[in-house]
Amino acid sequence: MKFAISLAALAAALVLAPAPALAAEGHDAHHAAAPAAAADAYSEGTVKKVDKAAGKLTISHGPLAKLDMPPMTMVFRAADAAMLDKVKAGDKIRFVADRVDGVFTVTALEVAQ
């Protein structure tokens, strides 16, 4: 009997307990954090070369935290050939790089303001 009373008390406490703080933040708080996380994925760099025939960009970049890379100059494949039309050698850019099928690839790119 003692066990049944304790179990009932626990169940009542769980039902009557306030919702977790995360739930209290609401749906909008989740969306506010999403763009910030996406912005953190961008790195800065300078286009050194555009090779449209090969579908590649040579970029001198700062640290790439997502790939655990220090600053360097390297060649990336462009995920979309249209990216290559947006930039030219000397352009300052913001970009997202990732490993796609084992190849370092620029998956998003914008000319820096």
Rank of each mutant, 00 (worst) to 15 (best):
F3T: 10
F3N: 14
A4V: 13
A4E: 14
I5L: 15
I5C: 02
L7F: 15
A8M: 00
A11N: 01
V15A: 14
V15H: 11
A17P: 03
A17W: 08
P18L: 11
P18Y: 05
A21N: 07
A21E: 12
L22I: 06
A23N: 03
A24H: 06
G26L: 10
H27C: 10
D28Y: 12
D28T: 14
A29L: 04
H31E: 10
A34I: 12
A34R: 07
A34Y: 09
P35Y: 08
A37N: 07
A37C: 02
A38M: 09
A39S: 12
S43C: 10
S43P: 00
E44N: 15
G45L: 08
G45E: 10
G45P: 04
T46L: 02
K48N: 14
K48F: 05
K49M: 14
K49I: 07
K52W: 05
K52A: 15
K52G: 05
A53C: 04
A54G: 02
G55W: 03
G55L: 07
K56G: 00
T58E: 11
S60K: 10
G62R: 07
G62W: 05
L64Y: 06
K66A: 15
K66R: 14
D68Y: 03
M69R: 11
P71H: 03
T73P: 02
R77V: 08
R77F: 08
A78V: 00
A79M: 05
D80A: 05
D80Q: 13
D80M: 02
A81F: 09
K86C: 00
V87C: 01
K88M: 04
A89M: 04
A89P: 05
G90N: 07
D91A: 07
K92T: 08
I93A: 05
R94M: 09
D98S: 14
V100R: 07
V100T: 08
D101E: 12
D101L: 10
G102Y: 14
V103A: 14
F104N: 12
F104G: 03
T105M: 00
A108L: 04
L109H: 12
E110M: 12
V111P: 06
Q113E: 12
